[in-house]
Design a protein around this nucleic acid. Sequence first.
DNA 1: TGGAATGTTGGAAC
DNA 2: CGTTCCAACATTCC
Length: 271
Amino acid sequence: MPEGPSIVILRDETARFAGRTIAQAEGNSKTVDFSALAGQPVVALRSWGKHFLIQLPTLALRIHLLMFGSYRINERKDAEPRLRLRFDDGDELNFYTCSVKPLPPDLDAQYDWRVDLMSDQWDPKLALKKLRAKPDMLVCDATLDQEIFSGAGNIFKNEVLFRIRVHPLSTVGALSAAKQRELVEQMRVYAFDFLRWKKAYVLKPHWLAHTKRICPRCEIPFLKAHLGKTHRRSFYCERCQKLYTSGAATTPITPARSGSKPRSRKTPPAS
DNA sequence: TGGAATGTTGGAAC
DNA sequence: CGTTCCAACATTCC
């Protein structure tokens, strides 16, 4: 479900609930005082990257769908909702398996909208400045950094790096100024491609790199590895995507961390 | 069919 | 003390 464009779709689908009063709230969230929500009008429904924000007079609710979260509007899944907001005429919003966190109501004081790839206030110059401040950062990590590219996810990373023909293990500082600019520009362009394709239910057919086995450009096999600090999977073409490194300043990559030897994700048996 | 995945957090480990 | 590691959360698909 969740990269920035999907949250914009959620925001658009729920826009008509703005101004309406919550009749009742319930759910299995452990962080929300449901009784405090009833009677409050929805001041605004907003988003910042992957955060869906429900602004009320006395507080805001931050909903993050994480990897498996989902929602239903005037429908119910066969599962306990984390949060359900019921309105007077029977309309309701249901959120499942997500993180719900109460925030103070003044969202403008807490969020820098210039960082959100989907925002009208998106500021490419600011992103460039943040990139330049971290020259040793790998581009596969930079493209996932929510403080630089809020809303970008792993699909963004793979698609954009393929588009601009940059190897995921390149360091930010080794890219030319023009290439850094291209990275920032294409993150924004891809965000709206993603949104358009997702709305039309044709996102996946437009993937050129993510989950792909063959490079669509030169037709040799893609490499697949879990790279960077996040160890998220990268799909890339060694021939088409250039590796930019700045030699001495580059942090050496430990072989065991390079992705060829995935670490166990299973919980070891308790003893 | 078990493993992995469009993700983040908090606390342990180093 | 700062950085890194990793378990936990929980659903859906292949």
